[in-house]
Design a protein around this nucleic acid. Structure first.
Length: 889
RNA sequence: GGAAUCGUAGCUCAGCUGGGAUGAGCGUUCGCCUCACACGCGAGAGGUCACGGGUUCGAGCCCCGUCGGUUCCACCA
């Protein structure tokens, strides 16, 4: 064959070519096939606004590894791809781009604006998909879905109507989080708390005297961080058992500016210890106050417009911005002598996670999903292990949410999204929920109705993703066959947004979990451990990494070097190391191919006459197959590939290939050359397969070059452990040889012996079995340890004076390098060794004379200790003999 | 305020259900352009496993506490 390959592996060009081929051959495509077991993953749909970032790269690499692994294991694998319409994110982008053209959203009208959104999607929606392909993602692109395509929209409508009928979706006036910039409500999960330096304004309200006049002497003092909300105050609250204020409960205070008299109420919500123990109550603009208001039947006075300016309820402040009003009110309070003081105060302010605007709690009619019943099966599933979260600690986070869940506000005052299928009668106001506009109002028969202008939270549709993508609500073959899916791979940051909601939706709509395992990964941080963010401009572009080092190197970097679920730091040195590994594999393969004759491909049958080293590497490879597979079954992807990496580089390349070179270069025995070549190919191909899920491109490139029986590695069979490839005796033997070779190299390196200077090696062991092993593998001392000749002896009578030595557990190695022997230095070295061994022996003896250890430790442990003791004893004797001899020189 | 997580070699991190730290990559020192690879080969140096207690025959690993970093949740006006 003698294929010529480039000296270094250059992924550029190769990767695109390979991916194109995979796509054309439809290797990623899955069809329902009842004769095979399915394995399914649904992709976390990236936003159509998105650009591939490191988080996507990690997430999708993990999914691709699982899919490729299972595909090779023979499963009928479906990786279901798709994208998310990303309601608010997209709407913001489209508004922005319109603004640049001088177009206002409202001028376009709803239909016109939606048209622009669809245009935007057509232009950018496939961008991230193409980027996922660069990564090597083996998604079934023929089945690509979109959260707002016909099927998914139908699913959304179906769920809404069904749940509404059940009473689990309702419309109500609740306090919700309002974003004054996006002008929409947002759910609790979308509020991000941010520490801000603010102030505590200490304010006092005058009491109302018995005669109804405003007191000039008696006041009630409290503190607030948002003075402007006082315009909406409808009470002041104290703790019911607070002695200081007992007499005031039920009395009234005077609210300046709006000239309102408001009651002093008693409520346990108030913390007596905090501040003055008095709280102003603004039911319309604070969630806690809202609750208090409900308990005491207080009026709810909304003082804000949708853009957070003060409305007509704010009296003379109407029209002012909330912060301008705040400043104005403080000034005026001061003039009125009602401002007691100002304190600096750092507090957490809720902001909108999309735009960073400080949210305002407001009372608005909104649609909600009732959570108390819905959440039960979702909580139970994780509790009883029906759904496994990996790593397990994520369960605590999960329960943290299921425990204190509030109803989910699902309506958004946006246009881009699934419009709520609710129709209000223009005459009687009755709301009808239906799959299309009713002809007449079922309540009064009026024929004019208006659809609810709001759309649904973007997560409402993604919650249905695992089954809506498979065709639900239709009863499709796909749904029946691929659902429930198997694993969900995602970051822990969207447990609440998405994972929980998919789980309860799955149970509610399908009566079955959406997946049995959730595999979480951490955040990809920059080299300094900071979150990658636009504001810091410290993001690393995965596409640039792919361009410079290849997708394989990027994938390896993302998957290794950190524990499951932990955050990781990304830095280029690691990518380079992995790129180098790819090159290592490339060159090992190149070496093997250079030594293959035309058509000389390894068959399945193990040839006769394998050498010890052949059996050793096969046996080691076999072990790695077993272990790596086990790790992957447990989703320990990084550990699995690390083992393969170490095996390929250390054992296969650095030892086996070196051992086998003489047999390839100058063998007079064709049989032994063929045996070596067979082993080389077999181990390489097995390793490539183990590596393929992680480094799909380079493994495919080599695989298709080195063998011609199969057309792609991605559909080849995953290696399995084979009893006939297990050679424990040879593993031990080569282990001894490696140890001896290393010892000789060490001795020579320490003394700076030039590699060109060959020397005799004398190995002395009392154990004939050990000598047999060395006899068989004698050549390695010449090829790997610079030996001119190897002498094996049962005693050291043949060892010349002045040899340097290395004492090993089962043998002592002598190298006659008299001119290099420095008696003093050698003595010192051996003395050190003696001391070390004495220390070890002391430790062994200590343990073995410890009766409690003997009584309580497992027997295997005790035996192990005894063995060690014997070994150290032997070595110690060897060292002492050496010292004796040195002393005589 | 509650919770999670981390603190192991100069740096970034592995260390499985407790049994001697042969840890890995990068960096570093010494020697090698050895006909697969200098994106390489060989040989080293480098660690009181944050600190203090406890459980255990035995703890980097389990428990408690302290200090330091990160994150999530709640949000007290």
């Amino acid at each position: 064959m003698r294929k010529e390959l480039a000296k270094t592996y250059d992924p550029q060009g190769i990767e695109d070519r390979i991916y194109k081929n995979w796509e054309e051959k439809k290797y990623f495509h899955a069809e329902v096939d009842r004769t095979r077991k399915p394995f399914t993953i649904v992709i976390p749909p990236p936003n159509i606004t998105g650009q591939l970032h490191m988080g996507h790269a990690l997430d999708n690499t993990m999914q691709d590894i699982l899919i490729r692994f299972k595909r090779m294991q023979g499963y009928n694998t479906l990786w279901q791809p798709g994208t998310d319409h990303a309601a608010i994110a997209t709407e913001v982008k489209v508004i922005d781009s319109l603004k640049k053209q001088g177009i206002n959203k409202n001028d376009l009208g709803r239909e016109g604006f939606l048209e622009k959104c669809w245009e935007w999607r057509a232009e950018y929606g496939s961008r991230i998909v193409n980027q996922l392909k660069k990564l090597g993602s083996s998604c079934d692109w023929d089945r690509e879905r979109f959260t707002m395509d016909e099927g998914c929209s139908k699913a959304v409508q179906e769920v809404f109507i069904k749940m509404h009928k059940k009473g689990w979706i309702y419309k109500g006036s609740r306090i919700i989080n309002w974003c004054p910039v996006c002008k929409t409500s947002i759910s609790d999960a979308e509020v991000q708390y941010e520490e801000q330096a603010g102030h505590f304004w200490h304010i006092k309200y005058p009491l109302i005297e018995a005669d109804g006049s405003v007191s000039r002497t008696r006041f009630l003092e409290f503190a607030t961080t948002r003075p402007e909300t006082m315009l909406g105050d409808t009470a002041v609250a104290v703790h019911p058992e607070d002695e200081r204020y007992q007499d005031l409960i039920g009395q009234k205070v005077f609210l300046p500016f709006v000239d309102r008299q408001i009651p002093v109420v008693a409520d346990e919500y108030v913390d007596r210890e905090f501040g003055t123990g008095v709280v102003k109550i603004t039911p319309a603009h604070d969630p806690n106050d809202f609750e208090v208001g409900k308990r005491h039947g207080l009026p709810e006075i909304n003082i804000l417009n949708d853009d957070a300016t003060i409305n007509e309820n704010g009296g003379k402040f109407a029209g002012m911005d909330r912060y301008a009003c705040r400043a104005q009110i403080v000034r005026e309070l001061e003039e009125m002598g009602l401002l007691v003081g100002i304190e600096d105060h750092v507090h957490n302010v809720g902001t909108h996670d999309r735009c960073g605007t400080t949210v305002e709690p407001m009372i608005k009619p909104q649609w909600f999903v009732k959570m108390d019943e819905l959440i039960k099966p979702a909580e139970e599933a994780v509790r009883n292990g029906d759904i496994k979260l990996i790593p397990k600690r994520m369960e605590k986070t999960y329960f943290n949410w299921t425990g204190g869940i509030r109803d989910w506000c699902i309506s958004r005052q946006l246009w881009w999204g699934h419009r709520i299928p609710a129709y209000t009668c223009d005459k009687c106001g009755e709301i009808t929920v239906a799959d299309s506009m009713p002809e007449t109002c079922p309540c009064c028969g009026h024929n004019s109705l208006t659809q609810d202008p709001d759309t649904l939270d973007t997560w409402f549709s993604s919650a249905l993703w695992p089954f809506s993508t498979l065709g639900w609500p239709d009863k499709t073959e796909e749904l029946d066959y691929f659902y429930p899916t198997d694993v969900l791979v995602t970051g822990y940051d969207i447990i609440f947004f998405w994972v929980i909601r998919m789980i309860f939706s799955g149970y509610e709509q399908m009566g079955e979990k959406p997946f049995h395992t959730v595999l979480f990964h951490g955040l990809v941080r920059d080299a300094l451990g900071r979150k990658m963010s636009k504001s810091l401009n410290n993001g690393i572009d995965p596409l640039e990494i792919i361009r410079d080092f290849g997708a394989d190197a990027l994938r390896m970097t993302l998957i290794t070097g950190n524990a499951p679920g932990n955050d990781m730091r990304f830095y280029n040195e690691r990518v380079i190391a992995n790129r180098n590994f790819g090159n290592k594999v490339w060159n090992a393969s190149r070496f093997i191919m250079m030594n293959m004759k035309e058509g000389e491909e390894a068959g399945d049958v193990m040839p006769e006459g394998l050498n010890a080293e052949d059996k050793w590497i096969l046996s080691r490879c076999n072990t790695v197959v077993r272990e790596a597979t086990e790790n992957m079954e447990k989703y320990e992807l990084g550990i699995a590939v690390q083992k393969v990496y170490d095996f390929i580089w250390d054992e296969f390349c650095d030892w086996y290939i070196e051992m086998v070179k003489p047999r390839l270069y100058q063998s007079d025995d064709e049989k032994t050359r063929e045996a070596a070549l067979w082993t080389l190919q077999t181990v390489l191909i097995t390793s490539l397969k183990l590596l393929h899920p992680y480094m799909p491109f380079i493994t495919e490139e080599i695989f298709t070059t080195i063998q011609s029986r199969e057309e792609t590695i991605m559909l080849s069979a995953w290696p399995v452990y084979r009893e006939d490839f297990s050679f424990p005796h040879e593993e031990e033997g080569i282990g001894l040889v490696k140890e001896a070779v290393r010892a000789i190299r060490n001795v020579r390196a320490e003394r700076n012996v030039a590699p060109s200077r060959k020397a005799k090696v004398i190995i002395v062991s009392e154990d004939p079995a050990v000598l047999d092993i060395f006899r068989e593998d004698e050549i390695f001392f010449r090829t790997l340890a610079f030996a001119s000749e190897t002498v094996l002896a049962a005693d050291k009578s043949a060892v010349p004076e002045g040899s340097v030595s290395a004492v090993l557990p089962q043998e002592t190695i002598y190298i006659p390098l008299a001119d290099l022997l420095d008696v003093a230095a050698e003595t010192e070295r051996l003395k050190k060794e003696e001391k070390r061994l004495l220390g070890e022996l002391k430790r062994c003896e200590g343990m073995l004379s410890n009766e409690r250890f003997l009584a309580k430790a497992p027997k295997a442990k005790v035996d192990q200790e005894k063995e060690k003791q014997a070994r150290y004893q032997q070595q110690l004797e060897g060292v002492r003999r050496e010292l004796d001899q040195l002393a005589r020189m």
